[in-house]
């Protein structure tokens, strides 16, 4: 059983890291702020989600697992809000130019 869980963890975390890698490449390669934000939010949402999912079976206790889920939800909330704010300020600067 524990082998299955370990394999699940490894697969999920590696998949999450792939999203992080893709997001970073996008951040470096994409032409403008909006597409770069798009790449970044993929890494934030899917990447963190997969890493957290992979770590869940490794936690000792339900409480620790719940804390991890809470961290994930907070990361989603803040990264979503911050990327909206950044996009908005870029848009405003384009409008004023």
């Amino acid at each position: 059983m524990s082998v299955v869980l370990d394999v699940f963890s490894i697969v999920a975390i590696v998949a999450g890291l792939v999203f992080f890698l893709a997001g970073t490449v996008g951040l470096l390669r994409f032409p403008d702020a909006y597409t770069r934000l798009h790449a970044l939010t993929k890494a934030d949402n899917l990447g963190v989600a997969l890493v957290v999912t992979g770590l869940l079976p490794q936690m000792d206790g339900v409480l620790a697992a719940l804390k991890l889920v809470l961290v994930w939800l907070l990361v989603m909330l803040s990264s979503g809000a911050v990327s909206q704010l950044i996009a908005r300020s870029v848009r405003r600067r384009e409008c004023s130019e």
Binding site: I86, R88, S89, C95, S96
Partner: peptide
């Protein structure tokens, strides 16, 4: 200054 200013009208 980068984040809290309200959008200009129509923006």
């Amino acid at each position: 200054a980068r984040s809290t200013r309200p959008m200009p009208a129509g923006g």
